[in-house]
């Protein structure tokens, strides 16, 4: 656990009514300007952990710290600092129009409707929702709904973003847009926590990775070291990113351990440059 983190979740134990134990001592932390991923298979407790981190569920044991103080003592005002995006947009959207959905929090924070409208339009433009503002959110496509849920949270500019399965049911185009939103939030100094079982997506965006299985967590170090550690991934019934698996099948060794296509391209470009340089050196020696 890191000192001085923006969000610290310590040793959480949680069970639902009916004695369904979901979390057994789960811990993680997130700092400003970093993307932390919690990966695990379905039913491993990711969603429950995010609900607890957002102060929406009370654990039987354990502590959530926002800054230095317990989150529970700072509610409900502390919710301004935490933005939670649910896995299923239909669970999150409850306003009659996209405009009202984005304005819901702003109306609690801003004093005039003019300010609210200005801010709504600004966020909508950023997330390409400008022409959908008058539409009911339930009539939109899944990708559009996901953008609305992101906009409704980004509108109040929280310090921490908690994203539950942000790529679930999304086509490639929307996944790339989500990646961009996450990178922008990271560059703006926000702490982003992603719960996902999409290893490729996690490899693309995360700085640190935790692995969760049956409510217990491991890892917490840099993404590359976790996502290349097969024994660690096996702990949560996960597989390494496709690029690594492909290299393994083709028996191609790469010292850089590329996790993404981008990494692989960079690594292969580096190899080409190295080969060119060494052949040039050999030629000059011969001369």
């Amino acid at each position: 656990m890191r000192e001085g983190s923006l969000l610290t979740v310590k040793n959480i134990h949680f069970r639902y009514p009916g004695n369904v134990q979901v979390l057994n001592g789960a811990s993680f932390s997130a700092e400003r300007g970093e993307v932390v991923a919690i990966i695990g298979s379905n039913g491993s407790g990711k969603t429950t952990l995010l609900l607890i981190a957002a102060g929406l569920l009370d654990p039987q044991n354990g502590l959530v710290l926002l800054g230095e103080k317990p989150l529970r003592e700072q509610l409900p005002e502390a919710r301004k600092k935490i933005g939670l995006v649910f896995q299923d947009p239909n669970d999150q959207l409850f306003n009659p129009t996209v405009y009202d959905e984005i304005a819901f929090t702003l109306r609690q924070l801003l004093s005039s409707e003019e300010e609210v409208e200005r801010k709504v339009r600004q966020v909508a433009q950023k997330l390409k929702l400008g022409n959908l503002l008058a539409r009911p959110p339930f009539k939109l496509s899944m990708g559009e709904k996901r953008r609305v849920t992101l906009a409704s949270v980004l509108a109040y500019d929280p310090d921490i973003l908690l994203l539950d399965e942000p790529t679930a049911n999304l086509s490639v185009k929307y996944v790339e847009e989500t990646e961009q939103v996450i990178m922008n939030a990271k560059n703006a100094g926000k702490a982003v926590v992603i719960a996902s079982h999409d290893v490729e997506f996690v490899a693309n965006v995360s700085d640190r990775v935790y692995i969760i299985n049956e409510g217990s967590m491991q890892g917490g170090s840099n993404a590359k070291s976790i996502l290349t550690d097969e024994s660690m991934l096996k702990f949560a019934d996960m597989r390494p990113p496709l690029v690594l698996q492909t290299l393994k099948v083709l028996r191609l060794e790469s010292h850089d351990n590329p996790l993404t296509i981008k990494d692989l391209t960079e690594a292969s470009n580096g190899n080409t440059h190295r080969k060119q340089r060494s052949s040039q050196t050999q030629r000059s020696k011969r001369r």
Binding site: P76, F94, T105
Partner: peptide, 17 residues
Amino acid sequence: RLEKAINARSFIPLEPS
């Protein structure tokens, strides 16, 4: 879930309007 979603974006102790 809806109750959680409403609470997650309610910053004041009053009921959301």
